[in-house]
Computed example of a mutant assay.
Amino acid sequence: MLGISRRSRYIAHAILIVGVFIVAFPIYYTFVASTHSLQTILRPPLPLLPGEHFFDNYYEALFGGVGRIGGVGVGTLLFNTTVMALGIAIGKIVISVLSAFAIVFFRFPGRMFFFWVIFITLMLPVEVRILPTYKVMVDLGLIDSYTGLILPLMASATATLLFRQFFMTIPGELVEAARVDGAGPWRFFKDILMPLSKTNLAALFVIMFIYGWTQYLWPLLVTNSNDMNTIVIALRKMISFADADTEWHLVMVTSVFAILPPILVVLFMQRWFVKGLVETEK
């Protein structure tokens, strides 16, 4: 039995190593390409080891600007994308947790009707809502603005549903005890519900941050100025149909910066993220 168990562990580790290699190799190859000159990239095969142009390429991308997107630097793209991703993640969480709190702990006419209206919006794909939403943004003068990038994507029926399901597991005795102690709705929300929900908040923040970071269709429609582009939109603009017209070394640098923040968010919040997804008892 010991031999079988040991062999099983070796097989499991081998499968995991192969899986990690398959997932990580394209990222490593992108980083390697970002350290070589344009001439080296255009003459395959690309070396498997980093080159000598690491500092030159990264400095040019961050501070020199990229020609195909109007000379905007990657630093500006990162700032725009970070503002959008944080705004969407925080906005979705705030709106969803307050909506779920009102639906679960308050008794008012039409409570379940409003919940089902929120829930039904899950059946409407983004493409159905995108044209009327764009028209509203134009009428309000929010094109090429952070508000226009963030506001239409802040509401989340999924997050509202998840918080509602969690809040419904809160024992009624806890609510009654808080009421007996003189805690009002805001104090109950702030001092009891929020500490109990911190793992759910962390898990949803990671999901929503990555959702906001990787947005493509909406930023493509609502931004016309290169200075307001997100890093995903800029990557598409940087690539030309002709290899000779594409600054591939800068494209690879931009790709590295596009990949890095979501990876860091997941790594730093991994423990809370996993607990928020699998923990059933608070």
Rank of each mutant, 00 (worst) to 15 (best):
M1P: 07
L2Q: 12
I4W: 09
I4T: 10
Y10A: 15
I11T: 13
A12R: 12
I17G: 04
I17F: 14
F21G: 04
A24D: 06
F25D: 01
I27F: 13
I27C: 07
I27W: 08
Y28L: 06
Y29A: 15
T35N: 00
H36S: 01
H36A: 05
S37E: 07
I41P: 01
I41F: 07
L42G: 10
P44L: 01
P45H: 07
P45L: 00
P50M: 05
G51D: 05
E60D: 14
A61F: 08
G64T: 01
G64M: 08
G65N: 05
G70Q: 09
G70I: 08
V72C: 03
G75E: 12
T81R: 04
V94E: 09
S96W: 05
V97M: 06
A102W: 10
F105H: 02
F108D: 09
F113V: 15
W116E: 12
V117I: 08
M123Q: 09
L124T: 02
L124P: 03
Y134L: 14
M137L: 15
M137G: 01
L142I: 02
I143V: 06
I150N: 00
L151M: 00
A155T: 11
A155V: 14
F163L: 10
Q165D: 12
F166R: 13
M168N: 10
M168P: 05
P171H: 12
L174E: 00
V175C: 08
A177N: 05
A177Q: 13
V180K: 07
W186H: 08
K190E: 11
P195R: 02
P195A: 03
P195W: 12
K198M: 10
T199R: 14
F205N: 02
V206E: 02
M208D: 07
F209D: 10
Y211I: 09
T214N: 15
Q215S: 10
Q215R: 13
Y216N: 03
L217D: 10
L220V: 10
V222M: 05
N226Q: 07
T230P: 06
V232K: 05
A234T: 04
R236N: 13
M238W: 11
S240V: 07
F241A: 14
F241P: 14
A242P: 06
W248C: 00
W248S: 04
M252L: 12
V256Q: 03
F257N: 05
P261K: 09
V265E: 09
F268I: 15
Q270L: 14
R271E: 12
R271W: 13
T280Y: 11
E281H: 09
